[in-house]
């Protein structure tokens, strides 16, 4: 970028202190017993993600992929302004339920995460947690130019620019914001990808886990959660 100010140097020295409730501390049980607790170690499972192999039989996997493609359950997690474009999809005008696309309230029941628009660092943390809680195989769709190269937030101090640095993106839908028709077309393309067996984002995430974690921790300074959130 031509107008970059060389004199400004970002502060890379200061570490953010761990939040008080997450430091090791003592808890007194109702019966008077005192328990040592290290929340980050004790409250979470520390196991890294596994690569899930495909079914051995080709035709079974194809059948499964067909079912997965025709039953996309979206996590109802609106990260940015683009979430407003998903509301017309649920309602009579565009009615995405016709195509087997549903919205679920919890990450445990969803397969498709739609990052709808810009993603601030604070939201990125939640998005990673939600993504990791979803059952595999799971898909990520980046919505709008903000997820592709930052869009109109290209010079923002708090908004990520490339979503695929942090989460394995299967598909981008360009636009600012893309209209619901564009979303529907994008979902149809995603269906084709899944039926071809290319929707393996979860395995990609597990294989390149260290790289993704490095990128995520480079922007999230207060990393106060386990590396993989079950």
């Amino acid at each position: 970028m031509k107008d970059m100010d060389k004199s400004f140097k970002k502060d890379t020295e200061t570490e953010f202190p761990l939040r008080e409730e997450l430091r090791p501390h003592q808890v007194t049980a109702p019966d008077g017993q005192v328990i040592e607790v290290d929340p980050l170690q004790d409250y979470f499972c520390q196991e890294p993600p596994k690569v899930h192999r495909k079914s051995y039989v080709r035709i079974v996997e194809d059948f499964y992929n067909w079912a997965r493609a025709h039953s996309l359950w979206i996590l109802g997690f609106g990260t940015g302004c683009g979430a407003i474009e998903m509301r017309p999809l649920m309602t009579p005008r565009f009615d995405a339920y016709r195509y087997g696309i549903q919205w679920r309230a919890t990450p445990r029941q969803a397969n498709l995460m739609v990052i709808s628009g810009y993603l601030s660092v604070k939201t990125l943390k939640r998005a990673i947690r939600a993504y990791e809680q979803m059952p595999s195989p799971k898909y990520v769709v980046g919505l709008g130019s903000c997820t592709i190269n930052g869009g109109m937030y290209w010079d923002s101090y708090n908004t990520i620019k490339r979503l695929d640095d942090y989460l394995p993106v299967d598909l981008y839908i360009a636009g600012c914001m893309p209209r619901p028709e564009a979303l529907l077309a994008g979902f149809m393309d995603l269906k084709k990808l899944i039926r071809k067996g290319q929707g393996e984002g979860a395995n990609k995430y597990a294989e390149n886990f260290d790289w993704y974690k490095e990128n995520q921790k480079a922007v999230i300074k207060d990393w106060d959660m386990p590396d993989y959130n079950w």
Partner: peptide, 8 residues
């Protein structure tokens, strides 16, 4: 079918 086909 989809729910049975999930891997994790």
């Amino acid at each position: 079918v989809k729910n049975f086909a999930l891997r994790s």
